[in-house]
Measured scan of single mutants.
Amino acid sequence: MASQGTKRSYEQMETDGERQNATEIRASVGKMIGGIGRFYIQMCTELKLSDYEGRLIQNSLTIERMVLSAFDERRNKYLEEHPSAGKDPKKTGGPIYRRVNGKWMRELILYDKEEIRRIWRQANNGDDATAGLTHMMIWHSNLNDATYQRTRALVRTGMDPRMCSLMQGSTLPRRSGAAGAAVKGVGTMVMELVRMIKRGINDRNFWRGENGRKTRIAYERMCNILKGKFQTAAQKAMMDQVRESRNPGNAEFEDLTFLARSALILRGSVAHKSCLPACVYGPAVASGYDFEREGYSLVGIDPFRLLQNSQVYSLIRPNENPAHKSQLVWMACHSAAFEDLRVLSFIKGTKVLPRGKLSTRGVQIASNENMETMESSTLELRSRYWAIRTRSGGNTNQQRASAGQISIQPTFSVQRNLPFDRTTIMAAFNGNTEGRTSDMRTEIIRMMESARPEDVSFQGRGVFELSDEKAASPIVPSFDMSNEGSYFFGDNAEEYDN
C-alpha cells in the first residue's frame, strides 16, 4: 500500500469516517454492505422474486439502478423543472426478469421514488447511507470498465484509444464523492478537466460571474484530485501550473494530454476495490451473516471469500459463452479491467482472455432483445487465490505491452514486471518541450526514458491461498515475461453508450 500519510484510507472515504482504527473501519464497511443486503432482500420480497430470480444479476442491476435514481437529487430536480413526455419524475423502474413456464419473461416495473427511498433508509437504520449508494455506483463503473473500451470518449477529448488503461471510473457520476474520486484513473480526471476547458473556450461566460466562481472551485478541486494521483514531483508541479492558470485554454489542454500520456509509464495511484452486485450481499445477509459484527474490507480476502460461497446467475444470449460472461463479471467484481492478464489468470486459476476474444456482450439486456431465446446460467466467480488490492500504480518500471492497449494499471499487489510499449508511448511525445512547463516536461520525458521494462514492481508481494486469511504465506508467482498482458488488445469491444 502506498503510505497513507495525511490521506484517509478508502474504507474511511467509503464510510465518510473520520480517523478510525482498522477494526472500526471493518465494522463501518460491514455496516454499509449489510445495509445493501437488507435493502436487496426487501426489494425481492416487494417484487415477489423467487430465490433464483433474486440471484439473477440482471435483476440486481435494475434494483441497484432504481435506488441510485431515487437518490439522484440533481436529476430529480431537473426532471421536475423540465417535464418530458412519458417520463414521470417521481417514478423509477426498469426490467425485471421472471421464469414463467420454463421461459424467461421481461416485466417492466415502476415504483415511486419516495417508496424506494423509504425501503433503502429502513434497511440502513434510517440513514441515507450515501456510502452504500456510492458502492453500487463503483460496481456499475467497474462493470462498464470491463465491458467497454471507451474509444470515442478518448478520441473526443484528444487522447489515444490505446490509453484505455487510464480510464478507470470514466462512467462514474460526478456525485460519487471521495470514494469515487479515489477509483478514477488519470485519464478519467484528464477527460473531465478537458471537457471543462473546452467549454470555457467555447463559452465566454463559463468562468464568469457567480456560476463561474463555482465552476472555478470545481476545476481547482479536480486538479488537486489529479495532482494527488501522480507520484513524481515534476508531474505534480505541472498540475500546479494547470490549476493556477488564470484562464484555462489550449496550453492547459496540451499540458493535460501530455500528463495523461506520461501516466502510461509514470503511473498514478488509483484505488481498486472489489464492489459486488447487491444480489451477492442480499443472500449472505439472508443466511444470517452479520457483516457489521464480522467486519468487512473491500481490499482484502473478504470479497473473494464471499464470491467463493455465492451463487449468481445471468441471462445468456443464444451465441454467448457462459464462461466468457463469467470472466467479464469476475473482472468487474475485482475492479480488474486494466490489470495484467498474466496476473489475473494466476489468481483466477483459469486463463483470462483479452476482451476481443470473449464471445459475450454486456450483462444488460436491451429492451428490444428477444426473450424467447434467452437461457440462463451460473456465473463462475470463484478464484484459485486471493491478493491484496493496490492503491498505487506500482513502481515506475515497465515491460512490453500489446498493440491495442499500451500499458496497464495494476489492481493487485503482486510481484511482476509491468508491461508497456515504450516505443509507441515515446513516439507520441513530439519533443515539444517549450513553453512555461518546459523544464517539467524535459524531466518527465527523462524519467520515462530511463524506466526499464525488466524491473520488478511490488517486490516480494504474492497471492494467498483462500485458507490464508491473515495473509501469512505469500506465494510469489513467476510470469512468462514475453507473454501478452493487455485486456483490450487489438480490440473490438462495443462502445459504451450512456
Rank of each mutant, 00 (worst) to 15 (best):
Thr151Glu: 03
Met371Asn: 15
Thr424Cys: 15
Ser9Lys: 03
Arg342Phe: 02
Val363Tyr: 02
Met440Asn: 02
Gln311Arg: 15
Glu320Met: 06
Arg75Gln: 09
Glu494Ala: 14
Val186Asn: 11
Met136Cys: 14
Gln58Leu: 07
Gln308Met: 15
Gln308Gly: 01
Asn125Gln: 08
Arg55Asn: 06
Leu276Gly: 09
Leu108Glu: 08
Gln405Arg: 10
Ala427Gly: 11
Ile406Leu: 15
Tyr78Trp: 08
Ser269His: 14
Thr147Asp: 01
Glu469Gly: 13
Ile63Ser: 00
Met163Asn: 05
Val155Trp: 04
Met137Pro: 01
Lys229Asp: 02
Arg152His: 05
Lys48Thr: 14
Tyr52Trp: 09
Gly485Asn: 10
Lys90Trp: 02
Asn76Thr: 12
Gly17Arg: 15
Asp439Cys: 08
Gln327Ile: 08
Val329Asn: 01
Val352Trp: 00
Asp16Phe: 02
Asp72Pro: 02
Thr92Ala: 13
Ala366Met: 07
Arg74Tyr: 15
Ala179Leu: 07
Ala27Gln: 10
Gly460Tyr: 03
Ser376Phe: 05
Arg65Tyr: 02
Glu294Arg: 05
Met1Tyr: 13
Lys348Leu: 05
Tyr289Phe: 14
Arg382Ala: 06
Leu358Cys: 07
Asn483Asp: 12
Val414Lys: 04
Ser402Glu: 09
Met189Gly: 06
Phe479Thr: 14
Leu276Val: 12
Phe458His: 07
Phe346Ser: 08
Asp128Glu: 14
Pro453Gly: 15
Asn321Trp: 14
Arg305Trp: 11
Asp468Trp: 05
Asn142Val: 01
Thr232Phe: 12
Tyr281Ile: 08
Lys351Met: 12
Thr424His: 07
Thr92Tyr: 04
Glu244Met: 06
Met331Glu: 01
Trp330Pro: 01
Cys333Ser: 12
Ala2Asp: 01
Trp330Leu: 04
Ser467Phe: 05
Asp128Leu: 11
Asn309Ser: 13
Ala237Tyr: 07
Ala251Glu: 03
Ala471Gln: 02
Gly86Phe: 15
Arg221Ala: 08
Ser359Gln: 09
Leu143Ile: 06
Arg400His: 12
Thr6His: 00
Gly209Cys: 13
Leu381Tyr: 01
Glu24His: 02
Thr390Asn: 13
Glu114Asp: 12
Tyr296Met: 08
Tyr10Gly: 02
